[in-house]
Design a protein around this nucleic acid. Sequence first.
DNA 1: CCTTTATTTTTTTTT
DNA 2: AAAATAAAGG
Length: 733
Amino acid sequence: MHDLDDLSPLLDALNPAQREAVCAPPGHTLVLAGAGSGKTRVLIHRIAYLMQACQVPAHAVLAVTFTNKAASEMRERLHKLSRLPIGGLWVGTFHGLAHRLLRLHWQEAQLPQGFQILDSDDQARALRRIIKNRSLDEKLWPAAKMQWYINQKKDEGLRPAQIDPGDNRHAQILWEIYEDYQQFCTRSGLVDFGELLLRTHELFKQQPALLAHYQQRFQHVLVDEFQDTNHIQYLWLRQLTGLQGAAFAVGDDDQLIYGWRGAKPGNLQQFQADFAPVQLVRLEQNYRSTGLILAAANALIHHNTARLGKTLWTSGAEGAPIGLYGARNEYDEARFITERIQAWVAQGCPYAECAVLYRSNAQSRVLEETLGAAKLPYRVYGGQRYFERAEIKDALAYLRLLANSDDDSAFERAVNTPTRGIGDTSLEQVRQLARKQGLSLWRASQHLLADNTLSARAGNALRRFLELILRLRQETAALSLSALTDQVLQQSGLLDFYRQKKGEKEQMRVENLEELVSATKQYQDDATDLSATLRAEGQTPLLAFLSNAALDAGDEQTPTNQDTVQLMTLHSAKGLEFPLVFLCGLEEQLFPHRMATQTEGGLEEERRLCYVGITRAMRQLYFSHAEVRRLHGTETYSRPSRFIQEIPSGLVEDVRLKTVAHAPYRPPAATLAHSTAEFHIGQHVSHPKFGEGVVLSGEGQGASARVEVNFGRQGVKWLVLAYANLQASPPRS
DNA sequence: CCTTTATTTTTTTTT
DNA sequence: AAAATAAAGG
C-alpha cells in the first residue's frame, strides 16, 4: 500500500460518501447514486484508486458503460486523472465488450470469422422476408412485433429450444418464426444485438476453461447505470465475476428508463441478494443543479411508487425558477427556445452550454429549421444516424459482401442497387433454391448459374454481379481501407447511380458517400482504442470498420468540441449535464407518450424519464408545450403534460416571449385555394358540370392548387382551381 | 424489367 | 410526414 500522500490528490476532492465508495474494501459494492451526485466521478476514481492504492494492474479491470459516448469519456477522464497506463483496461458497452469477446473467440463460439452485425433495420427486413416465405399475412404478423418478440426472448436469455410454445397457435407461429430467423442468421453469418450478449453468455457456459481465464483476469468488474441492466446482461455480469471477482455497480432506480428493453425495477435489490454481502453506499448530495431544479425533480419523482427511496439535496444556491412557456404550436415553441438561447449567448455564455431535450426524434426537425433560420450553430445527437442512411447502408452492403459472401442481408441489398436487371422474379428463384437447399443466396446463385436454369438475360445480369464482387475482392486485397471503399463506390456504380439523378436529395447522398471514404480514411488514421485493439487482435481493417459502424452508429461523426447547441432525446441525455436545459413538447400523448401509457408501468417510466431530463439542468431549466402540434401529418391538440402539474406551482414561473411585435408565426402551411382559403374542408360548392358537392381536401398552391370534391352520385373528383370554375354555395338544407 | 405514380400503413425511446 | 408497398405505364 502506498502512503496516503500519494493518494491525496485522488481523494481530497471527494466528499465523505464518495470517498467511502471509492475506497470500499474488496468485495462487492453497490453505489446508490442520485442524479448529479458524482456517479461517474466515483467510478473513475475507483478505478484509479484500485490501480494506485491496491496495485491492481489495468488488465484486471473491466468497466461497463451504457453508451459508447460514456465509454470514451471514461477513458479520457481516467487518463487525465491518473496518467497511468490504461492500455490493458477494458472499457465499453455490454454489446461492445461481448462483440470483442466473440471476435477473439469466434471459433469457440461457432461463428464464421467474418461474422457481421445485423442492425435493427436489417433485422426487420430479414423478418419480413421470413414472414413472406411462410406465406403469412403481413398484416397479422407485423415484422416489428416479431422483432420485439425475438429481441425480448434473447434479452431473457431464451433460445427457441428453451421456449415451450404450448398449444396456442399464435405462440407456435411466433416460435417458428424465431426458429426460422435464427437459421437465417446462422446461414448468413449474422449476429444481432441481442445475439451478441446471448452468444457470449453461452460461450462462457460451454467453455469453462475460457470463462475461468477471464474470471481470473478480471478481478474487478465495474458497471455504470446498473439500473438499466437487463436479464442477459445481469447473467453475464454474474458469470464474469464468478467467485473471486469483485463487482462494483453504480445505479439509480429513479433513472431506470430502459424498461422496454428488459431492465427491471428490482435490479438493485436483486444485486444485493445475489452478491451478498454487498457494501452499500448512498450518494445523495447533488452538485449539479440549483435548489429549485432539485426540488422540482424530487417532487415529480415522488409520484412514483415502489422506489428505493432517496432524496437529493444540495448546499448550493436556490437559483432561478423553472420557466414555463405555453406555445401556440411547435414553431412558436422553437422560436421561444431560439430566443432564449440568443439571450443566453448575449450574456457571454457559449452555445455548447445549451441543450434542447425532447421525447422523440421526430421533434428535432422543427427545432433544426428554426435554429438554422436564426443562424444558431447546433448539433443533433442520434436520430437518423449516419450509418443508417440508405446510401451508406448500400455501400456497406458491398463491403460486407466482400468480407463474407454468405451475408444474405447484404446480398439482398446490394444485388440490385443500383439496378442492374436482377428483378424480383429472378431473385425469387434464387431465394427458393436457397430455401430448399439451405444455402446462402450467394451459393444458390452460383448453383443456378452453373445449372443454367435462369433466362439468358437474368443469368447474365446475375453472373456479372457475382463477378463484380469477386473482382473487387481480388483487386482490393492489397489496398488500404479507404482506397478499397473508393473502389467499391466506383465499380459498383453506386456513386454514378446517385450522381445521375438531379434531385437535391440525391446530391446529398453523393456527398454522404464521398464522406464515407473520408470516414474510412479517418478511421484508419486515428482509430479509436477499440478498433486499435481489434486490429491488434488480428482483425482486418475492413472487419473492424464494419463492426464499428454497426455498434457505434456514427455518433462521433461530427467533431464534439465545437461550440454548438445540443439537441437530443431524453434517452440520449442520460449521464450528461448542461447549464441551460429546455424540456420541450411537454404534452399529454407525446410526453408521457401515448404508447407508454398503454403498457404496464409505462407511465412511471415516463416520469423517470422526465426526472432524468430535469436533473440534466445545472442552472436554468425551461419547460415548454404547444397547444397544437403537427404530429404524423395531422394537427393534434393536446393538454399540457401531467408532469407539469405534478411539480409545485411555486417552483414554476410562466414566461412570455419578449418580442411579440410581429404577427404570430405561421408554419409554411396549408391553405387550400390559389387565392387564400377560398375553399375550406367541408365547404359546399357547385360546379357547372358536376353540380353540388362538398370539399374533402386540397393541396398545392397557385396554378397547381387542387381540391378534392365529393359530388355525391357523380363521384369524388380532383379539380384544379385555376380551370374548374368552382363556386362556393350555401349548404343545402 | 425499370420507372413513375398512387395507395396504404405506421407512427418512442437504443445497443 | 415519411416510408413502404402496390399498381400502372413504358
